[in-house]
Structures are given as C-alpha cells and as structure tokens.
C-alpha cells in the first residue's frame, strides 16, 4: 500500500493497493469538479500504458490539474515498486 499527496486546493491524494488481477488496473476518482471526464481519461490512459496491472488506485481530488495528477500517479507507482510496499 502507498499513499501520496494531500486533498488540498490544486492537489489530490492517491491510495495505491495491490490486487490479484495482474491484467487490470482499477482507478476510482472522487472529485467535486464535474465535466472533466475526458481529461481524466486521457491522463489515466497515459499512465496505465506504462504497465500498472495488479493495482487499485483510489483518488480523492481537490481540483488538481493534469500535470499534478500525472506527478502523484508517478510518485505512487514508484513507492509501490519498493519491495516493502
């Protein structure tokens, strides 16, 4: 398990957990900012293309911009690559 970020303005938190399904990466996004689904999908598609199978990622969004989302996802993924995570 790994947690990155804080739910603050322009920021978000992302909780990374392992699942048994190595073929899928499940991402849940909770946000109060509506109307940005295509943007979320674009950022997440880029991210899962790096090979993120076996992960469940839960996001609480505080109105983060796409670059912040990408940064937090990359940080979380790196923490999950640590053998102790």
């Amino acid at each position: 398990m790994a947690i990155v970020g804080v739910v603050a303005s322009g920021n978000l938190e992302a909780l990374f957990e392992r699942t048994d399904d190595e073929s899928a990466c499940r991402v849940e996004v909770s946000t109060a900012a509506h109307g940005f689904q295509p943007l979320w999908e674009a950022v997440l598609r880029d991210f899962v293309a790096r090979g993120t199978g076996g992960l469940r990622i839960s996001i609480n969004d505080g109105g983060a911009r796409p670059d912040m989302v990408a940064l937090r996802l990359a940080q979380g993924l790196r923490l999950m690559q640590d053998p102790e995570a």
């Binding site: 398990m1 947690i3 804080v6 938190e13 909780l15 946000t31 109060a32 839960s58 609480n60 505080g62």
Partner: peptide
C-alpha cells in the same frame, strides 16, 4: 486506521466537498 481503512468523514459529501481517506 490508515488510509486503506477508508474511515472518511460522513458529512463532507453532503456539502459536495472531497474527503480524505485518513
């Protein structure tokens, strides 16, 4: 009760505010 326990505020959603897992 770490973030994975998801013990979030039961009130913030009523105000359309984002919760934090811890």
């Amino acid at each position: 009760l770490g973030p994975a326990a998801r013990e979030i505020s039961p009130h913030l959603a009523l105000f359309g505010l984002p919760a934090q897992f811890d």
